[in-house]
Amino acid sequence: MMFKRMKPAAFWPLLGVVVIAAGCGHKTPIPAPPGPVSPSTTPTGGNGKPAIEFTVEPATIDRGNSATLKWSVSGANYISIDVFGAVQATGSRNVSPYDTITYHLKAEGTAGTSTAETTLTVNPGNPAAPPPGDNGAGNNPNAGLSLNDRISRQIQDAFFAYDQYDISGEAQATLTRDATAIKSILQDFPSATLIVEGHCDERGSAEYNLGLGDRRASATKDFLVQLGVPAGKLRTVSYGKERPQCTDATEDCYAKNRRAHITAAP
């Protein structure tokens, strides 16, 4: 699905970057502490439905550390995990979320669909570590900033190559910083919803560019969600080539218009 165009080798190391960059000390309400082993769900596979084993170990980590998500499914012909999309029947992934997260696995078989979930609890860890760029003065630099101020100052556009919607290395770095900022913003504005806009340069048809911008917006959203931004807090819209931020017919200008841009939902 959406991540097939991404290079895992380039992606995973970036998760570490998130963590380093994410040390600002917001108090995260933590759910009741779970037991030392994750409450993995293991449906029996009765009625011929797919049988699932789905665990994360350890079930609790400090922020900045990683855990291993493991799954093993039998009797299914399509298996997906919410944050990854389609996966193989048996596998594991290292994950390093910023906050406590529940992963959902869905297995579709000929006899029906089974689901399972497992929760990874993240302790905020060392709240004193300032994020890069924070002067560490102790005062909250965000005090008094509105939602729109925060978004315009702290979230940057991700840019794309011509006629492409895959998240390049540079865009990955930008969006990794953005994910950190977004999570911080959403903690301070818990009722906010953000819109990921997909934009294109003026070359090509309006029709095709609407489709391309839609892919850029959803690829961006998927990337942010994978970094732990709640999917329900992000909506996407494609503006195709209808709202360029630059109108000259130059490559510089085209490049500025091939972007994902994040705003607050009205």
């Binding site: 699905m1 959406m2 029709e207 609407l210 489709g211 839609d214 892919r215 959803s218 494609s238």
Partner: peptide, 8 residues
């Protein structure tokens, strides 16, 4: 054209 499946 619709992106309901993910891509237009």
């Amino acid at each position: 054209s619709s992106s309901v499946s993910g891509t237009a």
